[in-house]
Computed example of a mutant assay.
Amino acid sequence: MLAFGYRKFGGPAVFEAMAQPGLKPTGNQILIETLAVNLNDEDRNERLGTNTQLALPLIPGHDVVGQIIEIGPAVTGFEVGTVIAAHTQHTYAEQVLLDSDLAVTVPTDLTPAQAVSLVTPGIIAYKTVRYFADVQRDQTVIIRGAENSIGMLAVQLAQRLGAQVIAIAPNRFSDRLTALGVHQVVAPDRQNPNHVLADQGDVVIDLTRQGEHGKDNLAVAKFDATIASFAPSLPATSKSIRFQSIHPTNVISDQATLQMLFKLLRTGQLTVAIAQQLPFTLNGFIQGHTLLDAPHDGQLVVAK
């Protein structure tokens, strides 16, 4: 069985093909033949060595869609031949072994690339909108970082709940966000959002990579607003703010989240943006991570 990983941290060129022993499911495990994987910032950060707990050599990857080729004796609800999606580990491989409790059946009318592109970005966006930000009908929701994959999904999910969504994103994304139906797009490269949107947000969602816009988020939030961000905390403020730091949570399960996202996608209530689909080869993973290191619009998917 072939996998793609690295023996040292660094740039995309650290990737190499690695022969791995055959995998055998036991207990509640299932074995899948990989069809597609999604490349995320988490994968990039691991490759750069930001997680000092990782042991080398490493087969990275977290988002996978694959077809079940073998099931453990305790598995129920899945059959050989079923295509599933999961958020798990070591997915840059021809075969992936995972706990069946992590798996969600992929509807037959979705492609593996479509389904896998929703895994991490969709889970984060859904839990942010529904749990951390707790978006309600008729609220004014300001989404910073609306141009990235998580942001585009959060925009659509907040609108489905009946919120009036204002997007903060570079001007080149204005047409795309307007097509999604946002109430307003404020481009920091054209206007100062703090002035244009001062004290307007019932909810402010910051989906930029580090969530470093704490003071700016406070400026556009109403008194008694909710702010959800990847940042661990907010700067001091006289406003009465409900702050939520976005982090992994099982309050809403990943499986329930993916089932809902797949339903929305297949019924046309949600769209995904795939920037590029790359071949499931060593060069495909190297090229994918090269693109991951640079600004890109949409998800990067490696697929067979």
Rank of each mutant, 00 (worst) to 15 (best):
L2Q: 14
G5H: 04
G5N: 05
A13D: 15
V14S: 07
F15D: 10
A17F: 00
M18Q: 13
M18G: 02
A19I: 08
Q20D: 01
K24H: 12
N28K: 15
E33W: 01
L35S: 12
A36P: 10
A36Y: 04
V37D: 04
V37C: 02
V37G: 03
L39E: 05
L39K: 02
E42C: 00
D43I: 03
E46Q: 13
T50V: 04
N51E: 10
L56Y: 05
L58P: 03
I59F: 08
H62Q: 14
H62C: 05
D63H: 03
Q67W: 01
I69F: 02
E70N: 13
I71N: 00
G72N: 05
A74N: 14
A74I: 00
T76A: 09
F78L: 13
F78N: 06
V80F: 00
G81K: 05
V83K: 12
A85L: 05
A86C: 06
H87D: 01
Q89F: 11
H90R: 15
T91L: 05
Y92T: 00
Y92M: 12
L98T: 15
D99V: 06
S100M: 04
V106K: 07
P107L: 07
T108L: 11
A115R: 01
L118C: 06
T120A: 10
G122L: 03
G122I: 03
I123D: 05
A125W: 10
Y126S: 06
K127T: 12
R130P: 00
R130G: 00
A133D: 13
A133N: 06
D134M: 03
Q136G: 02
D138G: 01
T140E: 12
I142W: 11
G145T: 08
I150L: 03
I150D: 01
A158P: 08
A158V: 05
Q159L: 08
Q159W: 06
A167M: 06
N171I: 04
R172T: 08
R172I: 11
S174V: 05
H183E: 15
H183Q: 14
Q184P: 01
V186C: 09
D189H: 08
N192C: 02
N194L: 01
L197P: 09
Q200N: 11
G201R: 08
Q210A: 14
Q210K: 09
H213A: 15
D216I: 02
D216K: 12
N217Q: 12
L218F: 11
V220F: 11
V220H: 09
A221F: 02
K222E: 09
D224Y: 12
T226W: 04
I227R: 11
A228L: 09
F230D: 05
A231P: 10
P232T: 08
S233N: 14
P235I: 10
A236D: 13
S238M: 03
I241Q: 04
R242E: 04
T249I: 01
T249E: 00
T249L: 02
V251D: 15
D254Q: 14
A256P: 00
L258S: 06
L261I: 06
L265K: 13
L265P: 10
G268Y: 04
Q269P: 02
L270D: 03
T271H: 12
Q276C: 08
L278G: 10
T281W: 04
T281L: 09
T281S: 15
L282V: 07
T290Y: 05
A294S: 11
H296S: 07
